[in-house]
């Protein structure tokens, strides 16, 4: 009899203790949720399609609230949901500037050198697992495996002579190729700004020259010639500040390696 009583008391007591402890912890560790979060969630379509690049509508709502995503980031809800969210947040919703993907490498089969011939799956991930991260001498360049082409749902990417080319008209800036590229050389650039640096190499000038005929050698000629302070060479690679660039294309003309495209 006493065993039954003891076991019931002991387990019941422990259960009670844990229960009290947890409910106390629940008060202690309470996370304040912004009431606007629920409102934004309601304003979104709720389809959880992932077209915005987030895991679902709830994740996008959190990102919008945190300021990491624009109120008009939902491509499905369009203007209606963007306006509703703008009203909740109390901000003016502006139409997002059109962007498109850009492959920061110009070294096709003729322009860059290779250390071996890759014969295998047409997948950049597979090619990169081999010796030295791919067949190209340049460790930064496009592998030409076509992983971005395969992942593009809009047929905007095509492989031309071993290098990925983006069709600016077809590209919707969904960002799938940006995530897919194992070399991380695809970026989203403003659609209207065509002056871009088509190189990702952070090797020094000598190495770049040995590997590729269209690589950035960090000579800073572009930086010196830009009247608007829009081109800067950081860590041995030129980059265009799209905010400042006026597309005079002086840098593209002066570039000795012709790695700035227009």
């Amino acid at each position: 009899m006493s065993t039954i009583l003891l076991s019931v008391l002991a387990l019941g007591g422990m259960g009670l203790l844990f229960g009290v402890g947890l409910s106390y912890a629940g008060i202690m560790f309470k996370v304040e949720e912004d009431p606007r979060l629920g409102e934004i969630k309601d304003a979104l379509p709720g389809a959880n399609c992932g077209g915005c690049g987030y895991a679902g509508c709830a994740a996008l709502a959190e990102a919008i609230l945190a300021g990491t995503a624009a109120p008009n980031a939902c491509p499905v809800g369009g203007e209606a949901s963007a306006k509703a969210i703008g009203a909740i947040l109390g901000v003016e919703v502006t139409v997002q500037e059109r962007q498109c993907a850009f492959v920061k490498c110009g070294g096709d089969r003729n322009k860059s050198s290779f250390r071996y011939t890759y014969q295998g799956l047409n997948s950049c991930g597979a090619a990169m697992q081999l010796a030295a991260g791919g067949a190209k001498n340049c460790a930064y360049g496009c592998l030409g495996g076509g992983s971005c082409e395969a992942v593009c749902a809009f047929g905007a990417i095509s492989m031309v002579n071993g290098i990925a080319l983006v069709d600016n008209e077809k590209c919707t800036a969904c960002g799938k190729c940006v995530k897919e590229c194992p070399k991380k050389i695809i970026e989203l650039a403003p659609y209207k700004n065509k002056t871009r640096v088509a190189c990702s190499s952070r090797d020094n000038g000598k190495t770049v020259r040995a590997n590729c005929t269209v690589g950035c050698i960090a000579c800073k000629i572009c930086e010196k010639n830009c009247e608007y302070g829009a081109v800067h060479v950081n860590e041995l690679l030129a980059a265009v500040d799209y905010e400042k660039c006026t597309q005079c294309n002086v840098c593209a003309e002066k570039c000795p390696m012709k790695c700035i495209v227009k």
Binding site: F18, L22, A25, G26, M28
Partner: peptide
């Protein structure tokens, strides 16, 4: 009982 309680606690704390 202990494990279930602990996991709940850890979850709350992490959140």
């Amino acid at each position: 009982l202990i494990i279930a309680g602990l996991v709940q606690l850890v979850e709350m704390y992490l959140k």
